[in-house]
Amino acid sequence: MSSTPAAKSDDDLYREGSQYRIWSFSQSELEEVRRSVNRIASEHLAHEHQMARSAERGGEEEGVKIEYLTEGEEYEMLLHYCVKVQDAAAVYKLPSHIKATAIQYLKRFYLKYSLMEFHPRNIMYTCLFLATKSENHFISIDNFVQPLQRVSKQSIIDLEFIVAQTLSFTLLVHHAFNPIHGYFLDLQSVFADRMDEIRSAHDRARRYANDSLFSDAAFLFTPPQIALAALMMANEGLMDAYMDVKFGQNAVLLRQLKTTTERIKSYIVEGGKPKIGSERALALERKLYVCRNPEKARKRFGNGSSSESLNDSAEPAAKRVKIEQEDTVMT
C-alpha cells in the first residue's frame, strides 16, 4: 500500500474513460468505420434480398437493382435525426446535457449499425428515453410515449436493450457544457472586471457547443477542447488574453491548443448550418424504405411517386441481431 495515491493528471483520468477508450477516433478512422458499416449492411441486405427472391420465384431473375443508401446519405439522414432528437427533447423540456447525451447515443449507435439495419425513428426515441434515465431524469414509459405518434411502448422497451448493448453499456457521455462552465468560473477569477463580457461569451459558447452536436466533433476532440473552441468563437479577444495568462509560459502547448481549436471551429460552423430540407429528407426516407422492404416497395411505389407515409417498422433488417441477443448464460 503506497502512502500517497499515484498522482494522475486530469488527462490521464480522461484517457481512462470510455469516451476516450471506445468512442474517440481520427477523422480517417471515423470515415473508415462508417464506410464499412455501410458496405457490410448493403452487402448483407443484397444477399438477403437475393435469397428471398430466389426462394419466392424458385429461380434467378434479372433482379431489379435495389439502390442502397450510400454512406454519405446515411450521414445526412443521421444528422437529420439528430435534429429530430433535439425537437423531441424540447417537447419534454429536457436540459441540454440530456439532449446532448441522446444525440451522442444515436451517433454512436450508427457507428455499429447502418440505418438500413435499424430504422432511425425508433432508435432515436429509444436513445432519448435511455438518456433521460442515465442522466437521472426519469420519465415513465407511459408519459414518454404519450406525445409520440406511431411509437409503441414495447418497441422502445425492446430496443432499449439493443441500444444499450450496442453502446457496449458505456452510458456516461461528457459534453462541452461542463468545461464551458468551468472556464466561465475561471475567467471570472482571472478578469474580475469583465463580468458582462464573460457572461455573454459563456451564453454564446453554450450555443456553439450545441451546434457541435450536429457534427463529428465529439468523436474527434475532447470536451474541454470543444469548450475552448466554442468560447474562442464567442469572444476571441477575451479568450486570447485568457490563454496567454494560462498557457503563456508554455509556447508549445499554446500553439497546439490554437491549432486544435481552429480545427474544431470548422466542425462547429458545419454543425450550425441548417440540415437537409423536408424534400431531401422525404427522398432519403423513401430510398431507405425501398432498400429495407424491396418487395413491399415494388408493390407500393410500382411506378413512381406515392405520397403514402413511409411507416417502416423498426424491426432489425438482418437476422444477425437475433443471434446477438441469445442467452449467454449456461446453467
Binding site: D11, L13, G182, P224, A227
Partner: peptide
C-alpha cells in the same frame, strides 16, 4: 477544467 485538454484524440490505427 482542463481534464482531457491535452489528450491526443484518435485511437490506434486498428480501432476502426
Amino acid at each position: 477544467p482542463d481534464s482531457g485538454l491535452q489528450s491526443r484524440t484518435g485511437t490506434s490505427g486498428t480501432a476502426a
